[in-house]
Write a protein that binds this DNA or RNA. Sequence first.
RNA 1: GGUCCCAUCGUCUAGUGGCCUAGGACAUCACCCUCUCAAGGUGGAGGCACGGGUUCGAAUCCCGUUGGGACUGCCA
Length: 480
Amino acid sequence: MAPRVRFAPSPTGYFHVGSARTSLFNWLFARQSGGVFILRIEDTDVERNRDEWREGIITALAWLGLDYDEGPYRQSEMIGDHRAAADALFRAGYLYACDCTREAIDERTATRATPGYDGYCRDRGLARSATTALRFRVPDEGVTVVHDLIRGDVTFPHESYEDFVVVKSNGVVLYPLANAVDDRTMAITHVIRGEDLLPTTPKQVMLWEALNRCTDEPVALPLYAHLPMLVNEQRKKLSKRKDPVAVESYRDQGYLPEAFVNYLALLGWSPREGEEIISRAAMIEQFRLEDVAHSPAFFDVKKLTHMNGEYLRRLSAGEFVARATPWVAPWNSAWRPSDRSPLWREDQFDATLFARVAPLVQERVATLGEVPGLVDFFFLDEVVVDEVALAGVAGDALARDLLDAARERLATLEWTAAALHEAIAALGEARGLALRRAQAPIRLAVTGRLIGPPLFESLEIVGRERVLARLDRIQELVAR
RNA sequence: GGUCCCAUCGUCUAGUGGCCUAGGACAUCACCCUCUCAAGGUGGAGGCACGGGUUCGAAUCCCGUUGGGACUGCCA
């Protein structure tokens, strides 16, 4: 039988990089084994779920290129199944009613060595009512063994589990049961998820086995694979509050989905061949659950960024222009990054001109979000001149003199990058300045900064008229 | 506190008893290239947590210690 796996996120916030990694590994496993990848959104916690978060999951998965064969299912649509399973379990005695409040439990267990529920209602034989929750009767003795494809067999003693709540007093069936029931109805064969769920797995195994004893058609347990956590610099599980984990924000910053996926794949897994930059096809071919690492991985944005730059540089010039469009000309794009409008207006932008300058910036950026900052002077009528650099030029007699000479020389020069290069070099030479020093004041005048794309090509593209105007303007600024 | 997981350069990892004077990538340093900044090239520094075993031989197997993490909700 073909493997069936599912990615089962709960829509309680922005799509998390950890979720992206989990879904990727599920997807890779499904694709490599000829299996089925299912998206099931676990939206039963009404308090914390929001529609926009649910949309976010679907959008993010699409962006990452992780297509699912079934779904998106919504767990809330399967509540009937959950209730039926709970009823069966209760009738068979695996579950019992409990009316203890958190406060009452805390009071009773305050002096005990082990925290958690004390089994107070275990044998009270309470009837179900609107104030009773249903708890699972965990065997006092014995162990439950979880067969994990990554870690091997993991044994949990029953005595370390309290009688956990399965159904809330308001009738809502909780995660351990709902999740297991859905996995049964969807015939899930492999559960691939984060290691943080490992300690709750025995609960699901116990429930699963109890369910099997309540039916004539038992369902085989799935195989488990618990992925190592993604951690921050403090080696703590990535936190939604403190760490930059929203996949959406990486998209906004201009990370390429293929680079992002490639980087994610390297967290806890590595290609058989040495090369880290690897195509999706090769990834699918080489991926093995058994090869997944056991220890937590730090999500290193620096390495991600480097890899993104590498992907950017491998793009054809035309493709680079197309990919950069949401950042430089959002009005020409169906999707646009939030909070990242360029400094220029639509009427100032020139697509043909951008296509000419794009190759100059392509190898200078690591994310697409950096592009506008490097090409602004091509589109702005007046550049913002860096104050510190301006003061440097103002205090340099040689530089001021060179600016004067350049203003005159460039007025009549043949307007090509090569001629500009030659002329400015000569201007510098006449004053004993190396080209690196001679080009600086001109670069400042035309681009507003001391760093940027190659100057002479830039001058050619900006055009004589605007270059001369900017040379005039910097002389005014310097004179002040 | 209890249960469980984990432990190779700063980081991500290769390594499954001899091929390891431990390989690669990011970061870092130096040099080269160079109109700035990048990119690129070359080179360097940097690691098997510790202690016991097993073995002719251990990063690799076993035990312990230490360290880190996860879970311990009428969240998922």
